[in-house]
Design a protein around this nucleic acid. Structure first.
Lengths: 256, 256
DNA sequence: GTGGCTTTTCCGCATCATGGAATGTAGAGT
DNA sequence: ACTCTACATTCCATGATGCGGAAAAGCCAC
């Protein structure tokens, strides 16, 4: 490269290696060397050396067909990372559960989906099955809609354009205009509801994690429970609590 | 470094960076710079540059306290990797389901727990709720015990010592001696049974993934279904099939 | 058998990462 | 409140290290 930005570079081989990993993920998790070269714009020789190193380390795996896939070690690291995320969020989520009595979740925006990274289950015996690490669509979940509501309108529109609005339950919002209105309203109101749009019988209040340092961090909190316990009065009562939790988590992330 | 092995190295900055990530994971997911320097044996300046790059890329996160934790991007990569794992295992699992008619799972050992990375559900309407990415204890699950049975005895004993043997159902094995015997028997027999030890009414046959390339890869297959359909005769019939699937998956991993 | 394709290896050049020492900062101890 | 220590961060000259073009080796299809 002749003219890149003067100084914002860190360790370049590292940035490139992770670029390869990300490209591989975008390419569906499996790709040949030349596909990676095309995707990253690097010379074949360079990519090969990078990739060989990653294979040696166990973060990439080479198939008999000589193509490459993501390796097992990444699963472990990712899991550890998800747990770690849970750790700092845990106190805030636990407080939510204590105040509200329903399961609280933290999710991150990853690509065009939301991924759950932390959870504190409700004390009730009738629990919710939100698994850590699970990925869900953004358009039919509380956390997903909360994540979108915190994004610039153009960006959230782009995501919706890519994923579409497939119906998951009878109450899933499938009309683009109605969905845009929902997001816009959530943006000004600060929280969003999920009326059984992902799973019938489950109501959910969600709010984005907002704050100075949350820019890169696209996260959202939610509280969800069965419709029987989540009546309108309850929702009205807990919405501010969820919003406050989002702010608190944002402050934790922000730091400084 | 003055005298390392002449040439078997790949890209060293990469190896070091991933070493940092692994050290961080081993240190409980959170560490200061000097702890990392001590753990990896590198100079503080070197680590700092590496770490700064990773922070810029989003794979690491710096806390207010100036300490470091694993970043959100790792969660996403790990998830993608786990899904990818499902892809190559899918054919083998699907064949198991075709032969047996019950849900087949693939799990990896991660730390002291087992994590499910792939699943093919049974055609029966009464299905099992094994979520991809879910973590389960090793002592009360088929896959967990199968994983242990493939480990050196010392290592599996160390895991059990750390996790203990908490009862999850009335049939969970809680006696250390009985558990050790169970693992030893599984080691020679090649497969292991789960008699509702994790969930009442669910029986399960599991076998480790074994083979030349499986060394680092700690994986196990399982087939599970309701007790009503999993009688003794069925178990006897399907156990060899599960074992064979474990071997086949091991061969796939080995490759070359 | 032959041709195009991708993957892999090689090698000289300059860049890029390196790590020790210097500076800045936070928190503990007195 | 002040100092002292320990840690995180920045700087810089050195040379080892990663870079990428081009050539070799394989693979597959025709």
């Amino acid at each position: 490269m002749t003219t890149d930005i003067p100084r914002p570079t860190g360790v370049q081989s590292l940035a490139r290696a992770f670029g390869v990993l990300e490209s591989l993920a975008e390419l569906g998790g499996e790709a040949g060397l030349s596909e990676l070269a095309a995707a990253t714009g690097l010379a074949p020789g360079t990519i090969h050396r990078l990739v060989r190193t990653l294979v040696d380390l166990g973060y990439l795996r080479q198939l008999p067909s000589r193509r490459y896939t993501l390796g097992p070690k990444l699963v472990g690291l990712g899991e550890t990372a998800a747990h770690q995320f849970g750790r700092w969020a845990q106190p805030v989520l636990a407080e939510l559960v204590a105040q509200i009595g329903e399961t609280a979740n933290l999710a991150l925006l990853d690509g065009d989906q939301a991924v759950y990274v932390a959870q504190v289950p409700s004390p009730h015996s009738m629990r919710m099955f939100t698994e850590i690490g699970r990925r869900v669509p953004v358009h039919c979940t509380g956390v997903g809609k909360a994540l979108l509501s915190a994004l610039p309108a153009a960006e959230s529109a782009a995501i919706v354009a890519r994923t579409g609005l497939p119906a998951v339950t009878p109450t899933t919002i499938t009309d683009p205009a109605a969905f845009a209105a929902e997001i816009a309203e959530a943006h000004v109101r600060g929280y969003v509801l999920d009326e059984g749009e992902q799973e019938t019988g489950v109501r959910c209040v969600a709010a984005p994690v907002v704050g100075p340092g949350a820019g890169d961090n696209r996260a959202a909190v939610s509280v969800s429970g069965p419709t029987s316990r989540m009546d309108d009065a309850t929702i009205t009562r807990i919405a501010p609590l969820v919003v406050a939790a989002g702010r608190r988590l944002g402050a934790l992330l922000a730091t400084a």
